[in-house]
Design a protein around this nucleic acid. Structure first.
Lengths: 302, 302
DNA sequence: GGCCACGATACCGATCGGGTATCGAGGCGG
DNA sequence: CCGCCTCGATACCCGATCGGTATCGTGGCC
């Protein structure tokens, strides 16, 4: 009963799906099945009920899940405490400068309260690098928005926000209740500079090649719309102020706030930070959001 | 940072000696050295100070020791809780019927209090099988006295008691302050039946072949001495009553109360039971006892 | 100065963990 | 009703890891 095995079990028990759990663990499904089977042999109890309807936890499995979470949490705490004792408890958090997320300082405070002695640095970047310098090693973990090139990274979703078109208040379509992407065909859109992550660029362009001014930061987006009358996508549900309006766009996937870190990064503060973050954002991941995700992932395959 | 590695570290940190720790872990020293080195690489801190004077904990190592103990304890608790949930929380404790140890029921009570739902069976045996049926599988763990055939078993010392000669009060040597084994040469000694563990037999015979009546239980020993005028070894420091006296024997190693279980036994209650037992007996393992042990182990090699 | 104690290193073999390919059962649509 | 599809299980292979034996290097001590 090693920690790795328990991590595997927690993943399966949370996903209730071997394939997804394996993906989350960056491994393939067969060894995961084997590991769970070995765990069941070791405990001498059936932990998961496999049926055609899916995977379900047995009562013993539920007990193990709770205990394993507690144990893994304790293990993370151990690593942090040792790092603190060794004077190596430093975590650099990359923050996407979209100014829509109030939570980072709160996160950092919660983290410091939980693990006295840690040092958290925040490094804010503009919209041209959604990984905030993760790939380059400038930060240890990024609190940012998907999508972007995830190769070599582990990504964990914290929240999903609806998006909409940012328009001048005097735009002909500004009064609409909602729009579809097709309604904005032919308009000039603001774009991000060359070198910006392709997936990010594509998402915020609604999946098409666009024409229009280049911006780097949220404020520039607003200025581009206000001054040049272009359009662009932004988060819905906020008051853009300043003679601008946001009209929800019904056929765009919500924008996902995620944590991302380098796969296999040994920094002991990482896991604890993700835990704290997940706890802080938990109320944001509503069932409807989850359902939307499930829908999205279903649609993705065919 | 797996649990196994932490177990290794705890062993070394407690023994402050790689060789002894390796012995305790039933492995050889080189892989243990390697594992500790890997752990130091993973944590990025020096955990142990190796010098010619011996091994010492660094401050970071001390933190890790405390944290690792807590984590391993939690892991044991996890296993017990899962076993309880699975309805498999049964432990059969073998108890050597020497009637000198008041602790078992107390141990069982402490264990049940710590882990509600466990079931503890006690099986008491006579002196002819110091392993209380461990080898035969009749019990899971034995609370008994060394020495005996330890092949395939893990043994952990809880306490060491001085021993002495059991004599009739009217014996010529009964008034002596202490005796040496040589003083008892030529006397008739009580013995244990054929088939009794050889090491056990040899220890209680002072290392020599003896002549005399055969006994199976503590009461029979007393009767043999009282009625037949034979001698025999028993625990010092207790009043044997009934016209008997115990005279300390200076050249016999103290009798060690030990826990023993089958190496590699997967019963999750085992480790927890040993923890509880160790905690209950801790005040009994005085520094002098420890020193005596160290002496004994030194003497054993040459 | 030589022996001894003890941790580190070198090297080897067995085991284990993870990967790919494939199977088999159950559900669902044509 | 048949075939496809999904998903967990199985078979098999390979490389990493772990533990063992032999040996070294160093510092203390007679």
């Amino acid at each position: 009963m090693e920690l790795r095995t328990l991590r595997y079990f927690v993943a399966v028990a949370e996903e209730l799906h071997f394939g997804r759990a394996a993906a989350r663990l960056h491994m393939s499904q067969p060894p995961l099945s084997r590991a769970i089977k070995a765990l069941e042999a070791e405990t001498g109890a059936v932990l998961l009920e496999r049926s055609s309807a899916g995977v379900a936890l047995t009562p013993v499995g539920a007990v193990l899940l709770a205990e394993a979470r507690a144990l893994l949490d304790r293990a993370d705490t151990l690593r942090v405490r040792v790092a603190v004792a060794a004077g190596a408890a430093v975590l650099t958090v990359g923050l996407l400068g979209d100014s829509t997320d109030p939570g980072v300082t709160r996160l950092a405070r919660a983290f410091r309260a939980r693990h006295p002695g840690v040092e958290i640095h925040v490094r804010e970047t503009d919209l041209t690098d959604p990984t905030c310098g993760l790939h380059a090693g400038a930060v240890d973990i990024a609190l940012t928005r998907a999508p972007f090139d995830e190769t070599g990274l582990t990504v964990r979703e914290l929240r999903a926000d609806p998006v909409g078109a940012l328009l001048r208040a005097d735009d002909p379509q500004a009064r609409r209740e909602s729009l579809r992407l097709a309604d904005l065909a032919g308009r000039r859109w603001f774009r991000f500079p060359d070198g910006t992550d392709g997936q990010w660029q594509s998402y915020w362009s609604g999946g098409e090649e666009r024409e229009g001014p280049v911006v780097r930061a949220v404020q520039e987006c607003r200025q581009a719309v206000l001054w040049n009358g272009t359009v662009g996508m932004t988060l819905a549900g906020h008051d853009p102020g300043d003679g601008l309006v946001v009209v929800p766009v019904s056929d765009m996937a919500p924008s996902r706030v995620v944590l991302a870190w380098r796969e296999g990064d040994g920094n002991p503060l990482l896991r604890s930070f993700t835990q704290v973050a997940a706890a802080a954002y938990r109320p944001c991941l509503t069932p409807s959001t989850k359902a939307a995700q499930a829908e999205a992932s279903k649609r993705r395959v065919p």
